[in-house]
Amino acid sequence: MNIVGENKSFGGRQLRFTHAADTLGCEMNFSVYLPPAAEHERVPVLYWLSGLTCTDENFVHKAGAQQYAAEHGLAIVAPDTSPRGETIPDDPDAAYDFGLGAGFYVNATQAPWSKHYQMYDYVVEELPQVVSSACPIDGERAGIFGHSMGGHGALTIALKNPHRYRSVSAFSPICSPSNCPWGIKALSNYIGGDKSAWKAHDSAELVRIAERHLPVLVDQGEADDFLAEQLKTERLEQASAEAGYPMSIRRQPGYNHSYFFIATFIADHIKFHSRYV
């Protein structure tokens, strides 16, 4: 594992690492922000999962999170969104919504994707071990958040692993991938045609069977072009209400799907997580 980038930011360090990811069978990049507090103690950590077409750097450059992470003494880890490399299979049509940059944070079971596209195991198992070996992070105090495809990833991963995370939040998450074009394409290719297996990767389904209720914050812009067709926020609202799972799901008038939206409310999300981690 090597440091390939470093910048001072708000008294802390913004780092970028590269390493050989055993889970994915390729070289992977991930970014870590360490607040000033990390110079003398292990600090709590938030894992950020980005959306379609993103790398580990989009959030780092656009969200403006470092200032608030420094204030609250939190590290932020941002992995890439899929395996990478010349040998990694991609969408046959080079579409943006599948393959490279679109790992959907699941473990693929179908060929040819199953050899490398094991993003669920990478985020849940391998990445925390790698980060903890290189950085002064307290892995017992962890939260997870993300945007769009990454919001889907954060919610599903947290709902399936409430013992690993103390809080979860999302911007514009894909709330029910079983019922939207992005999700149907990804799940049918990665997981297969058995739709019953998709429920394990669908937040609106997972809240119905959750035995432990983590603190949840969701922000959704009402001017988001993807809201009706792809994000299906109403399904998460309905499922959480029916299951008695308390969630703060905020609809924000005038905001769209962009990082301008994320940057506006990132302080709220980091403050939210700081209460629990």
Rank of each mutant, 00 (worst) to 15 (best):
E57I: 12
L231V: 00
P112M: 05
A20Y: 12
S196I: 07
A70S: 15
S172W: 11
F59P: 14
D90T: 11
S196C: 04
E71T: 10
H201G: 00
W182T: 07
P35W: 01
G64F: 14
M247D: 01
I3D: 07
I270T: 06
F272E: 01
F265G: 02
N107M: 02
A94S: 09
D194A: 14
K232N: 14
S50T: 11
L49Q: 13
K115V: 13
G51D: 05
V4A: 04
F17A: 03
G221Y: 06
W113I: 04
A37R: 05
G103I: 09
T81C: 12
R251K: 14
E41L: 02
A241V: 08
K115I: 02
K62S: 15
R42M: 12
K199A: 14
D22P: 00
V131L: 07
R84D: 10
P35L: 02
I191P: 13
W198S: 10
G51E: 03
R250D: 13
R166P: 01
F261R: 05
N2H: 12
Y190V: 00
P112H: 02
Y68N: 04
V207Q: 00
Q14V: 12
A102Q: 08
H201C: 07
Q67N: 03
S50H: 02
S132F: 03
Q66E: 15
E39P: 04
L187A: 08
G103N: 05
E86R: 10
D121E: 06
I184D: 04
C26P: 09
P181E: 05
L236V: 03
L100G: 11
A223Y: 03
N58H: 15
A94Q: 05
I174R: 01
A210Q: 01
S172N: 13
M247L: 14
F171Q: 05
W48C: 13
E86F: 09
H61Q: 12
C180W: 12
E126S: 12
T81H: 07
Y68Q: 04
